[in-house]
Design a protein around this nucleic acid. Structure first.
Lengths: 195, 195, 195, 195
DNA sequence: AATGAATGAGTCTTCATTCAT
DNA sequence: TATGAATGAAGACTCATTCAT
């Protein structure tokens, strides 16, 4: 029965993701989430103690999904440059997915300002991303393709800043065709910085 | 009389700024704004047609205030590098101000995803910021301190991405001491990119 | 389950009727209706999309209740004169009921001037009433008790005008004892007109 | 100065009439009235103690205007039948005027149900109208054109009921072309009743 | 486990009324 | 006299949460 419960929660979580993605963090209602999940409003409360609770888990699951995907993608390659390219590609998956995922993510980012729980989850996500950056930088230094004098953690933070900054800019300008443009300047900028 | 009205609107706008900054975009109520302005709820509606209307003007005034400050600061210097430093300094004014201003800005950025009006205002802000970047880059190219082969607009976008990405990261990590750290890596990264 | 919902709506509708009857169309609040129904404010919105919606249904149910009662009463008799008397009696049921029903009806009549939905519902009610008048007139012509040269629809309209005009006059003068007086002059006038 | 005050009040009263006529009794605001009068909101309160007060005076002035016009019109003729025709013609002036005046009147009629002041004013209007009816009936009896056995007051009430009932029916059906139709059946019915 | 009816606190908005100028 | 800025009470409506079934 434990398995069914897990499945139910996943189903609701998924519905919450689409609902927030469509309507925005502050517009979404429990009824919206229930509708997206094709269940009754009561079910949502049965599996989650409160709306706050759902959204918290949603941030957690969203960031962890993003992170796992990044890990998976860079795992397919072996050189630092290839891994870096895979990392950036993983972030800029496709216009459609980026819009869905990062709208939700951006909403939570804004929420994090006034909510310690969100802040904590987001910090964990940052640390994970910095970990990816560090790994690539250290690999590149070992390969001799990146400069020796760069501090891995510091530059890992810069890398993430460039990635987030580019993605948010693309998201806000909302010109689908520029997806590739932003992916490219993001990758090229990071590369130039590390070389 | 016109002047008094302008002043009143500014007072309310200012109250709205602090209210959103303290409570967040979606938590703020008209009563909060009225309280911050030390006026009755009715007054807010007397000067603004709706809550939406206040928030729209708030985004406009906030972004334009940020932009004007940036313009003012880079105007104090004459060389490209100095202007770039002034630009970054203007963004990273002080931990306190950054928190206030960019919390509001980040909230609107998140809203922009689902609201054409916010999107439009934000695009205008981006274009203004890109203009600053382009100006600095072209000056630097003239001075011979920046590479010749860089496209001003493209790199202006990268500059803003790094700035926003760094600031949001600092804001979210919420460690005041790292304010200088983020300002520095932001400036250094941009410089390295352009040289 | 469907039955329970129907009952609930009826209960609220009934509460709305009494609330409007006591307080008047433009004074009544959703809270008043909720109080009359002994339910919470939220319930009213659960069953009706808006206040407008409740009042619309109230006009519909009020006019249809009046009409059904008229039909029922004239159905008890077979001759034209008896039916006419039953018709007038049905309208002038009793001082208490008349006050309740026709106060609500008069309120809606006034609203109909600026509202197409009310106008439409009221027109339907008029047509129903004219139908009753026509039926009685045609029957009376067949029986030879009414003149041959009268146009059924035209006179049906006159009949309703006399009925409404008398009732409104009684309602506005608000002298209970005159209830019988107005019922009598109403019936006698119509009769004299048709003979 | 007394004269100017009177004029001001008249101006506001007139504006109130048009405002209520356009918007309806319960929709009209003091701002609407002020706008129609091209004065500031403050002025309205300067000349009338309250909104209730304006509307009360409006009912009084409206009913008295209707009554004075009826008196004036029947004064132009000398025979009972001509006076009756003039009376009906005065009520059914023109589609445009009827709509304006009787919308306001119907609104007040509805209000009268729950308000003693309105009720009193309206009763006064009824008594005036009954007076007209009685006068015509007595004249007709004297002329020998009306039956001898009719009670003037009773039939005066019937006359007014037919007039109001017809006018309200025309107003609610809202078919301009039927204005003449209703005027005719109204006059013919009354005539048939009295002969 | 699941439903959805019921609750009522909270929010935006309107507007009569007051009052300083 | 006249203005219109300011107030705050009141009302429609939303929605998270509870709970009986």
């Amino acid at each position: 029965m434990k398995k069914k419960e897990e499945e139910r929660k996943k189903q609701i979580m998924n519905a919450a993701f689409h609902a927030v993605s469509n309507l925005g963090y502050d517009k979404v209602t429990l009824q919206d989430i229930a509708n997206h999940a094709n269940v009754s409003k009561g079910v949502v409360h049965y599996y989650f103690t409160s709306k706050q609770n759902i959204l918290l888990e949603l941030l957690e699951s969203t960031t962890s999904k993003i992170y796992r995907f990044e890990i998976q993608e860079i795992g397919k390659y072996h050189s630092a440059i290839e891994k870096l390219q895979a990392y950036v590609n993983a972030v800029f998956v496709s216009p459609q997915d980026n819009k869905k995922f990062y709208r939700v993510y951006l909403d939570f980012l804004a929420q994090a300002n006034g909510n310690e729980d969100y802040k904590r989850i987001n910090l964990k996500f940052y640390e994970n991303c910095w970990g990816i950056g560090q790994e690539i930088i250290e690999l590149g230094k070992g390969e001799g393709v990146f400069r020796e004098d760069i501090d891995p953690l510091t530059y890992a933070k810069v890398i993430r800043a460039i990635i987030d900054g580019s993605l948010i800019q693309w998201l806000t300008c909302d010109i689908e065709e520029q997806h590739t443009f932003y992916k490219d300047i993001c990758f090229n900028s990071i590369l130039k910085l590390l070389k």
